[in-house]
Design a protein around this nucleic acid. Sequence first.
DNA 1: CCCCAAAGCTAATGGTTGTTAGCCCTTGTC
DNA 2: GACAAGGGCTAACAACCATTAGCTTTGGGG
Lengths: 193, 193
Amino acid sequence: MARAEEIRAAALELFTERGYQATTMGDIAATLGIRGPSLYKHVASKQDLLAEIMTATMNGLLAAHRAAVGTTDDPVVRLRRATEAHVRYHARHRREAFVGNREIRSLVEPHRAGVLALRAEYEACFRELIEAGVAAGLFRVTSVRLASYAILDLGMGLSAWYREDGELSEDEVVWQYSEFALGLVGARGEDGA
Amino acid sequence: MARAEEIRAAALELFTERGYQATTMGDIAATLGIRGPSLYKHVASKQDLLAEIMTATMNGLLAAHRAAVGTTDDPVVRLRRATEAHVRYHARHRREAFVGNREIRSLVEPHRAGVLALRAEYEACFRELIEAGVAAGLFRVTSVRLASYAILDLGMGLSAWYREDGELSEDEVVWQYSEFALGLVGARGEDGA
DNA sequence: CCCCAAAGCTAATGGTTGTTAGCCCTTGTC
DNA sequence: GACAAGGGCTAACAACCATTAGCTTTGGGG
């Protein structure tokens, strides 16, 4: 079933470039040198294609987050690791992340509710991370919500402009954005990790 | 010609909520209690509606920027003022900014090229602001480009989640984000303005 | 009172699109 | 060498949509 995977890849590329609504099944098929109706031998529908991309992306992001924060209890290190994972995921899966952020509106129920729930969970993780740091007296923020939005938005923006062959390497961006994040929350105990 | 303005307002609301492609002329008309074809007595086309919204928005943003940086030569104050203007504009015109950022793909030539040019100009302004601060030894950044993207992305993110009746006031967000921006570029001479 | 223009309506047009139906060729297997 | 299935194709369908054509209503100015 390699073909189904090729179709998903082609769809992802076109959804990223033109958007879901502006991409036709014929466009996706043409990328593989076949005709639109042939796609239905491999995938259920256009909507299904989007749903698979989006839920897989959100699950991947959450998994990366959990792996990142799972190894320590130090709030400063946890936020750094979480931001690194966040940024790295958005750089390494920029198309998925881009589509995942922009096409929630195009997702039809019940998939939309599911993806929104995953996203809310992810946002809550960051808020708790920051709250823990504030409670420990290690962070100084005016609004936990604002700081978490800011960090999360950096990743979303990244997925819009980042290119693998750009002038900035993945590691550079990851490092720099983690510094930004710690600066945003006024972290004191600079860890150096 | 109040009707044309009502139509633009209705279109803006729906473009924000559903996206350009997912909004039909019938939807826009229904908001005003009339039928789709009647819109053509007041506006040229759906595409024209989008083009007007987007160019007006970009021009407004640039104007706000120029007004903000025009009163001083101090790089620190200039960046603070520019960020304040950037954030305030995105908060106060969140729908326009949101559509302006997300629907560039839906804009057809030659309008698209025009809006992209304005946007590139706007981004260049921020880069120059930061470069000036670095040259003056007041900012310390690893990458000017990265820092400017980060600041700009904060505004875009803002336009996605900000609500006038939310828990954060416009002034709070403006102040906090300006602090973030100065932190991002490692500003030394905290001005206090 | 009449006229005309503004602004609405319905009907129709032309195009696009997701999806289904049904057909055919290839290929690997018994 | 038949056969079944995988995977492609064309044709057709049923919506939907932006836009145009052409008709009707309405209200203000002469």
